[in-house]
Simulated assay, not measured.
Amino acid sequence: MFGLLATVVVFLIVTLLRRRTGRTENVDGLLIEQQRRIRARNDRTSYSSAAVHHSQLNGTDPPRH
Protein backbone atom coordinates (compact mmCIF):
# COMPACT_ATOMS: atom_id res chain seq x y z
CA MET A 1 0.00 0.00 0.00
CA PHE A 2 2.77 2.42 0.92
CA GLY A 3 4.64 1.51 -2.26
CA LEU A 4 1.62 2.38 -4.40
CA LEU A 5 1.20 5.72 -2.64
CA ALA A 6 4.92 6.50 -3.04
CA THR A 7 4.72 5.62 -6.76
CA VAL A 8 1.77 7.95 -7.28
CA VAL A 9 3.53 10.78 -5.42
CA VAL A 10 6.72 10.36 -7.47
CA PHE A 11 4.69 10.26 -10.70
CA LEU A 12 2.90 13.49 -9.78
CA ILE A 13 6.14 15.23 -8.86
CA VAL A 14 7.79 14.20 -12.12
CA THR A 15 4.73 15.28 -14.10
CA LEU A 16 4.68 18.71 -12.45
CA LEU A 17 8.41 19.22 -12.90
CA ARG A 18 8.30 18.30 -16.59
CA ARG A 19 5.51 20.74 -17.37
CA ARG A 20 6.38 23.75 -19.43
CA THR A 21 5.94 27.16 -17.89
CA GLY A 22 3.09 27.82 -20.29
CA ARG A 23 4.66 30.94 -21.74
CA THR A 24 3.81 31.84 -25.29
CA GLU A 25 6.57 32.28 -27.83
CA ASN A 26 4.83 34.13 -30.67
CA VAL A 27 3.58 37.72 -30.84
CA ASP A 28 -0.12 36.85 -31.15
CA GLY A 29 0.00 34.73 -28.02
CA LEU A 30 1.86 37.44 -26.12
CA LEU A 31 -0.75 40.02 -27.11
CA ILE A 32 -3.57 37.71 -25.99
CA GLU A 33 -1.83 37.13 -22.65
CA GLN A 34 -1.36 40.90 -22.21
CA GLN A 35 -5.03 41.60 -22.93
CA ARG A 36 -6.13 38.93 -20.45
CA ARG A 37 -3.82 40.32 -17.76
CA ILE A 38 -5.22 43.82 -18.29
CA ARG A 39 -8.81 42.53 -18.19
CA ALA A 40 -8.12 40.55 -15.01
CA ARG A 41 -6.56 43.61 -13.35
CA ASN A 42 -9.53 45.77 -14.34
CA ASP A 43 -11.99 43.15 -13.09
CA ARG A 44 -10.18 42.89 -9.76
CA THR A 45 -10.46 46.67 -9.42
CA SER A 46 -14.09 46.88 -10.56
CA TYR A 47 -15.36 44.00 -8.46
CA SER A 48 -13.29 44.51 -5.32
CA SER A 49 -15.06 44.51 -1.99
CA ALA A 50 -14.68 48.28 -1.60
CA ALA A 51 -16.01 48.98 -5.10
CA VAL A 52 -19.03 46.73 -4.64
CA HIS A 53 -20.00 47.88 -1.15
CA HIS A 54 -19.45 51.61 -1.73
CA SER A 55 -21.05 51.97 -5.14
CA GLN A 56 -23.89 54.40 -5.81
CA LEU A 57 -27.36 53.08 -6.48
CA ASN A 58 -28.37 53.72 -10.06
CA GLY A 59 -31.99 54.65 -9.26
CA THR A 60 -33.53 51.40 -10.44
CA ASP A 61 -32.25 49.28 -7.58
CA PRO A 62 -34.51 49.06 -4.55
CA PRO A 63 -33.00 50.65 -1.43
CA ARG A 64 -31.48 48.26 1.08
CA HIS A 65 -32.58 48.53 4.68
Rank of each mutant, 00 (worst) to 15 (best):
V27D: 04
D43K: 04
V8D: 05
I38R: 10
R18V: 12
D28N: 12
L12C: 12
H53Q: 08
S55N: 10
L57I: 03
V27F: 01
G22Q: 04
L31N: 12
G22H: 05
R20G: 11
N58E: 08
Y47T: 06
R19S: 13
S48R: 08
G22W: 04
T60I: 06
R37W: 03
N58T: 07
N26A: 10
A40G: 01
N42M: 09
Y47F: 15
F11R: 02
L16A: 02
E25A: 11
E25C: 01
V52G: 02
T7C: 03
T21R: 15
T7R: 04
T15E: 12
T21S: 15
S55G: 09
F11H: 03
S55F: 02
I38F: 01
R44W: 06
G29V: 01
R39D: 14
R44S: 08
T21M: 07
N26K: 14
T45M: 14
T24Y: 04
N42V: 07
V52W: 09
D43I: 03
V8M: 11
V8Q: 06
S46Q: 10
D28V: 14
D28L: 13
I38S: 04
T7M: 06
T45S: 13
T24D: 03
L12M: 11
L12P: 00
L57D: 09
Y47M: 07
D43G: 00
L30E: 06
L16M: 04
A51W: 03
D28A: 15
L12D: 07
Q34C: 01
R20C: 00
R19W: 08
S49E: 05
Q34P: 00
R44H: 08
R36N: 11
T45Y: 13
T60H: 10
G59V: 02
V10A: 13
G59F: 04
L30H: 07
Q56W: 06
A40M: 07
T15L: 15
L17M: 09
Q35Y: 02
R23F: 03
R23S: 07
T24S: 07
Y47W: 11
V27A: 10
L12Q: 07
S46M: 12
G59D: 05
I13S: 06
L17S: 08
T60R: 12
